[in-house]
């Protein structure tokens, strides 16, 4: 399978460059986190003690040795130590990941439901003005700052309507508003792509043929239009995952939830480069893997492409 090999090779190259770039930018620079944390005069550490600390973090050897050490660590899942907490980075990520996975997973599901509902309603709604209004909604969704949306939701649902308690919420209640905050901006590009491809499919000749043969509007919609229109939406899965990670940083900060996003935010605030590098490389890994999976799955879902690929 030369195609699979080539795509996998490209993905590996992208990951290798991402790692190298983040390493060069974040770790090899002079003003590193160790100096920031330990060199402040209040600690009163002698230069020898600082040198010892640097040695214990592996920061005293030449940059190329650090590079080899770090990359061989990354390959086996060892991301080094957090300067801020003094614990291994993979442990920090391991404890933070489940919280974020729940938030992001639910956010993604809600976003898909929202997008599908919006896309179909905006082509099926009874009045022209209503369809136009629904069509414009995704454009509004992408223009709303995520952090502001979260705050407004807290304001409306917790303080005005008192539907979701602010203090003493159980885990399920605590998830409602963050999930909604995360889902709204993610649903927008999905809804736009779906609506556009529903339009395209409805105009294509085979739909006219099915209609002419006497199929009911419902059969045309669910069997012919829906199945064909959802395919293009899969292609933006990788981009959406990236937005989920970015959205998690903001959402977890606004709602004060623990997770990868919060870890990222604190890593930046404390110049904890090892943590940030691990998160950035992992995010790139997820993106690359998802895109690779989409490329491989797409021809299976759409037999027309498989025939083309074989012919080419």
């Amino acid at each position: 399978m030369p195609y699979l090999a080539r795509r996998t090779g490209q993905a590996l190259i992208v990951l290798a460059i991402a790692f190298t770039a983040t390493f060069v930018l974040l770790q090899a620079l002079p003003g590193d986190a160790i100096l920031i944390k330990f060199e402040s005069p209040e600690l009163g550490l002698s230069p020898e003690q600082i040198a010892d600390i640097r040695a214990s973090y592996g920061a005293d050897v030449p940059a190329w040795q650090q590079f080899l050490h770090t990359i061989s660590g990354f390959v086996v899942g060892d991301f080094g130590y957090s300067v801020q907490y003094g614990t291994p980075v993979h442990e920090l990520i391991g404890t933070a990941l489940p919280e974020t996975l729940v938030l992001a997973g639910l956010g993604f599901v809600v976003a898909v439901v929202l997008a599908v509902a919006l896309a179909f309603l905006s082509t099926l709604a009874p009045f022209g003005w209503l369809r136009q209004g629904l069509r414009a909604l995704p454009g509004v969704f992408v223009s709303v700052p995520v952090f502001w949306l979260g705050i407004v939701l807290i304001q409306v649902f917790s303080f005005q309507l008192r539907l979701v308690p602010v203090i003493g919420a159980d885990p399920v209640q605590g998830l409602i508003l963050p999930v909604l905050t995360l889902a709204v901006p993610i649903s927008a590009p999905l809804a736009q792509i779906l609506a556009r491809s529903i339009d395209e499919v409805q105009l294509s000749p085979f739909v006219a043929v099915v209609r002419a043969k006497g199929a009911s509007p419902a059969r045309v919609l669910w069997r012919d239009v829906a199945r064909n229109a959802t395919l293009p939406a899969i292609t933006i899965a990788g981009v959406l995952i990236g937005e989920l990670i970015g959205g998690a940083v903001v959402t977890e900060t606004v709602f004060g939830r623990a997770g990868i996003g919060r870890l990222t935010e604190q890593a930046v605030a404390n110049q904890d480069v090892a943590v940030l590098q691990a998160i950035v490389v992992l995010a790139a890994l997820v993106f690359v893997v998802v895109n690779l999976a989409v490329d491989l799955v797409y021809p299976v879902l759409d037999p027309r492409l498989k025939r083309k690929a074989v012919a080419a």
Partner: peptide, 12 residues
């Protein structure tokens, strides 16, 4: 493109 926009901005 592989690095989410916000993470890229934070790294810089």
């Amino acid at each position: 493109l592989a690095i989410p926009g916000l993470l890229l901005a934070l790294s810089i």
